[in-house]
């Protein structure tokens, strides 16, 4: 990933900058707490926009390159916004041997998106994640903070349909 490729989707509001300031002020040693800071900012903004990396750097004097390095190193951080429902399909071993690949194919086909993409209506973003630790219910996925187990291709479509209907 290169910084230049990332388009900014939204403008950061005054209010959001104040929130970022508040988060930065929570830590006396921002460099040692960079990961916690980024986690808090992401849960506030839904992602880490490029301008925010520059802003954190300006405020804390941590090199932009270092912040960018940390953001891209850890899989939790993202530099593009996600849809309302984040689908996290478990890629653990137990899920793999129980057919998670087929579940992934079904999600992609049903929503017509690829891994890491968001649907046009902004309702879903689909990602693959490392083991969720619910191996006995494999294959498993999480949508938001809800875990769904013993998935089949039909069941996964049902779940997505229910969420679509709610909206």
């Amino acid at each position: 990933m290169c910084c230049e490729d990332l388009k900014e989707e939204i403008e950061i509001s005054e209010e959001q900058y104040l929130k970022i300031d508040e988060i930065l002020n929570m830590y006396q040693d921002p460099e040692g707490n960079l990961i916690s800071i980024l986690q808090k900012i992401q849960s506030e903004l839904n992602y880490i926009p490029k301008v925010v990396i520059s802003y954190i750097s300006e405020k804390t004097k941590i090199y932009e390159s270092k912040i960018f390095g940390v953001v891209t190193f850890y899989s939790q951080f993202r530099m593009a916004p996600i849809g309302e429902n984040l689908i996290m399909l478990c890629q653990g071993t137990a899920c793999h041997v129980n057919g998670s690949e087929k579940i992934g194919e079904t999600i992609k086909e049903y929503l017509n998106i690829d891994v890491g993409e968001t649907t046009d209506d902004n309702l879903f973003t689909y990602t693959n994640v490392a083991c969720l630790g619910c191996c006995s219910l494999a294959p498993v996925m999480m949508i938001g903070d809800k875990t769904y187990g013993n998935l089949t291709t039909d069941k996964v479509k049902e779940i997505l349909k229910t969420i679509q209907k709610k909206n």
Partner: peptide, 11 residues
């Protein structure tokens, strides 16, 4: 940081 896929003892 129980990262092994297929392990949930620590959880």
């Amino acid at each position: 940081d129980e990262g092994d896929p297929g392990a949930f003892m620590d959880r």
